[in-house]
């Protein structure tokens, strides 16, 4: 299991999903699991960064895809 430090708070990496050739990273705060967020990976000068999504619709679409992927497996 991997964590990422975002502004001093460790976030669990729940999943990484590629949508339309963009890789999205799904995270939840370690000590506050309802605190969910998505970042997308951008590469600049050979370094990988987690960047914010551009629009609300992009977020909602990415959230929907995550749910469709995971709803069954966690419901077992």
């Amino acid at each position: 299991m991997d964590f990422v430090n975002i502004n001093g708070t460790y976030h669990i990496i729940l999943d990484e999903i590629t949508i339309n050739n963009k890789k999205y990273v799904y995270l939840a705060a370690e000590n506050s699991p309802l605190n969910v967020l998505i970042k997308k990976i951008v590469i600049e000068n050979g370094k990988e960064y987690l960047d914010g999504l551009d629009t609300d619709d992009e977020v909602i679409n990415a959230l929907d895809i995550y749910y469709q992927k995971h709803k069954e497996e966690i419901g077992q």
Binding site: D2, V4, I12, L14, Y26, L50, G52
Partner: peptide, 27 residues
């Protein structure tokens, strides 16, 4: 839009329960 250096800030840990709860919460 605040950026995070993915590789630099990434850590590994082993706590499957937390991951389960986090995964469930997200769903």
């Amino acid at each position: 839009k605040e950026r995070v250096d993915f590789r630099r800030e990434k850590r590994n840990a082993n706590n499957q329960f937390i991951k389960f709860i986090a995964g469930f919460s997200a769903v």
